[in-house]
């Protein structure tokens, strides 16, 4: 973990309350898709943890949702602004486990799955992709996944885009799923798949494993979402925290 000074190269609204920020800076501490960065913002005491959407040498892409004063400030940053972030946080997805996987994402849980999809592609693994959103205004990155050659299915709650319903409506039999999204979605997917990896969200203070602010119970004891997660294996998840 290091604190890196990034420069904003692009900060663009891509859906309702959803922004994509491209940053220029040292990404060498980021070692797996599904990791996150913890961003320092003026007038906010705690940092804002944001999942890594995509990363390359010297370039980092984040997709975030504006929910409060901190993320609103982020959305107003213009090209050339600087941003300090702790990088290389969390475990990320383990692609070694992948056997005929499916990628399933909901809302602002979709971004880390894009980096994962690219990584899987590098290893000649081409999962089908299922994305869920509330409404057409909330949809993003369906085309980006398609551009990589993935078979993409999209569900919206109100049926305004793709198929009306939930991501779980697309799941018939699934051996292995890579999942990120709101807890009710994670839980619903968990019930319909045999195995997989699930990325969780939590309110954090430090983001690097010392404050115990984001601890949850698992079958293998207490785990810190920030340092032992955010990605948990199917076999260790308990739902009694939520």
């Amino acid at each position: 973990m290091r604190e890196i000074k990034f420069e904003v190269a692009e900060n663009k609204k891509i859906a309702r309350d959803i922004y994509r920020m491209t940053l220029i800076g040292d990404t060498s501490d980021i070692t797996a898709p599904g990791q996150f960065v913890n961003i320092k913002l003026p007038y906010q005491y705690l940092r804002r943890p944001v999942s890594v959407c995509d990363y390359a040498d010297g370039e980092l892409t984040l997709i975030y949702k504006t929910v409060g004063a901190g993320t609103k400030f982020m959305s107003e940053l213009s090209k050339g602004s600087n941003l300090l972030a702790l990088t290389g946080l969390g475990n990320g997805y383990d692609i070694a486990d992948a056997k005929n996987p499916v990628i399933i994402g909901g809302g602002v849980g979709v971004p880390p799955l894009y980096g994962l999809a690219k990584k899987l592609l590098e290893h000649n693994i081409k999962p089908s992709v299922i994305l869920g959103f509330n409404s057409i205004e909330d949809c993003f990155y369906g085309n980006e996944f398609k551009a990589l050659g993935f078979d993409v299915k999209i569900a919206t709650m109100d049926g305004s885009y793709g198929t009306k319903g939930l991501v779980t409506d697309f799941i018939e039999s699934c051996e292995y799923a890579y999942v990120c999204g709101p807890v009710p979605m994670l839980k619903a997917v968990y019930e319909k798949v045999q195995d997989g990896q699930f990325s969780f969200e939590a309110r954090m203070a430090c983001g690097f494993g010392v404050c115990m602010g984001c601890s949850i119970r698992t079958k293998n004891g207490f785990k810190r979402i920030c340092a032992d997660g955010p990605v948990l294996k199917y076999s260790e998840i308990l739902w009694e925290n939520s």
């Binding site: 005491y45 705690l46 939590a202 309110r203 203070a205 602010g213 984001c214 601890s215 939520s242």
Partner: peptide, 14 residues
């Protein structure tokens, strides 16, 4: 139980 953390002006609650 979660959540255990809250942002405050110039500080935090745990």
């Amino acid at each position: 139980e979660q959540p255990r953390i809250a942002e405050c002006t110039s500080g935090m609650i745990n």
